[in-house]
Design a binder for these strands. Structure first.
Lengths: 113, 113
DNA sequence: CTATGTATCTTGCATCGCAAGGTACCCGCC
DNA sequence: GGCGGGTACCTTGCGATGCAAGATACATAG
């Protein structure tokens, strides 16, 4: 069996990709680092989610990468935003605002008539 | 080809189910009615989404149904929340708040250092 | 030499939104 | 009568993607 199928698991879909872009907005990061940060935020469950996602982003040229040595451990692949990636992030932020607004209206607006 | 694969399409996952529950929080509704309402809100694209979803909710006993005649047209299957459904809705509302808070923090908090 | 922590990636599965298609009722119109 | 459009239900097959589990490999400590 795969997939926990909790409510939150389904929520992560589509958001995660752009959260990664947002985290790369300020500085270069590497995969394992992103996993721990997003894991703490409750937005990702395992590395099996992030690495395929990063591959996709690279294939779509939303991020670019470079290998860098670690002070202690195996080398790391660092990711940074491309111009395309930055544009995609901006577009998504608008969609996100609209989307959450619609959902909030349905979830809360109708609760107390 | 199926699936539009827009950013918003993926966002709907997991949210839609509970939006339906929320819409049933106040009054009985029937499927076609839900489709038009959610379609206007930009939260659903077609009936092919809603009817299987309603079947699932029925199977999980979050909703109960009854057939009622229409003043003009074929009979309608009306859905109403069960006690379980109402509990699930409440739980989700908390999850939703936490989730959007986490995402907002990542999307916006880091944008302007 | 082995165990632990860091770091990468892959495979197979389950879930769910979507397009497309199918069935059937009711009504107005010709 | 029968035909078309709107209403209303449902199913099938596909694509996208998060997840668990597992494979690989480097560095360091014991």
């Amino acid at each position: 069996m795969a997939a926990l199928d909790s409510a939150v698991t389904q929520l992560r879909r589509g958001v995660l990709e752009h959260c990664v872009l947002a985290l790369l907005g300020d500085e270069e990061r590497y995969g394992y680092d992103l996993v721990t940060e997003l894991s703490d935020a409750g937005l990702v469950a395992s590395e099996g989610t992030i690495y395929p996602l990063l591959s996709r982003l690279r294939k779509e040229e939303l991020v670019a990468t470079s290998w860098q040595e670690s002070p202690s451990g195996p080398p790391r692949r660092y990711y940074r935003l491309t111009a395309r990636g930055r544009r995609a992030l901006g577009t998504f932020q608008d969609s996100w605002r609209d989307f959450t607004h619609s959902v909030d209206q349905i979830l809360e607006g109708r609760q107390r008539p």
